[in-house]
Design a protein around this nucleic acid. Structure first.
Length: 191
DNA sequence: TAGCTGATTGACT
DNA sequence: GTCAATCAGCTAA
C-alpha cells in the first residue's frame, strides 16, 4: 500500500502538510523499518533561495523530474537528507522529511543509531532519520511509490493538529512558513 | 589545484 | 553558548 503518484503531483507545501501522519517504509537492510512522518519542510523552485533547485545544479535532473521520487543529498560530509520530489514534471519542488515516530523495526533502528530503542531521538532530525532507516546516497532517485523505499497512507485517523512555522537549519530564505509538524508530538525535532 | 560552503549532529566549555 | 567532523560541487586562478 503506497501513495499514488498523483499525491506528489501537487505544490510542495500541500504535499508537505499531507505527508504528516503517513508511513515511511524502508526495506533496506535485514529488517524492514517503518516510521510515521511527524515533521516536514517544503522547498520550492528557483524562486526559493533555500531550494537546491536554485543553487545546486546536480540536483536538477531529479528536482525538475516527475513527483514521487526520492532526492537524497549529502550534507556536511557526514549526513544525508531524504526528500520526496513534489509537483508536476518541469515544476521543481520537494519535501524534506525531518522526523519520524518509529512504528516498526525499532530494534534495527536503535542498532543503526546507537541509542536505546525507546529513545525519542531514534529518527528525530534529517540526518538521524536517514541513518535509522538505512537510507544512503544509493537511494537517490528511487521511486517512492514502488521499491525498497516507499510512503504509505496513514494507518490511523489524522486526528492530530498540524502546526506550521519557519524552516530551521538553513541559511537562505529563512522566514518562509514552510515547515509543518504534528503539534505536541514528542518525536518532532524542534518546537 | 586550492579554497569555500552547507536543508547536521554530537561533544564539549 | 562554541566547535570539529568531512565531502560533493562550485568558484577562482
Amino acid at each position: 500500500m503506497t501513495l499514488p503518484r498523483a499525491f506528489f503531483r501537487r505544490p510542495a507545501p500541500v504535499v508537505a502538510r499531507d505527508l504528516l501522519g503517513c508511513l515511511l517504509v524502508s526495506r533496506r537492510g535485514r529488517t524492514p523499518t517503518v516510521g510515521r512522518i511527524v515533521e516536514t519542510e517544503a522547498y520550492l523552485g528557483p524562486e526559493d533561495a533555500a531550494s537546491h533547485a536554485a543553487f545546486r545544479p546536480g540536483s536538477h535532473a531529479l528536482l525538475y523530474g516527475d513527483g514521487g521520487f526520492a532526492y537524497v543529498f549529502p550534507a556536511y560530509g557526514m549526513h544525508v537528507c531524504l526528500n520526496a520530489v513534489a509537483r508536476e514534471r518541469g515544476e521543481p519542488g520537494c519535501v524534506l522529511l525531518r522526523a519520524l515516530e518509529p512504528v516498526a523495526g525499532l530494534v534495527a533502528m536503535a542498532r543503526r543509531r546507537g541509542v536505546p530503542a525507546d529513545s525519542p531521538q531514534l529518527a528525530r532530525g534529517p540526518g538521524n532519520l536517514t541513518r535509522a532507516l538505512a537510507v544512503t546516497l544509493r537511494d537517490n532517485g528511487c521511486d517512492l511509490t514502488a521499491g525498497a523505499l516507499t510512503i504509505g497512507p496513514p494507518d490511523a485517523p489524522r486526528d492530530f493538529r498540524i502546526a506550521r512555522g519557519v524552516r530551521v537549519g538553513i541559511t537562505r530564505a529563512t522566514g518562509l512558513p514552510l515547515r509543518f509538524w504534528i503539534a505536541g508530538n514528542r518525536y518532532v525535532s524542534k518546537l
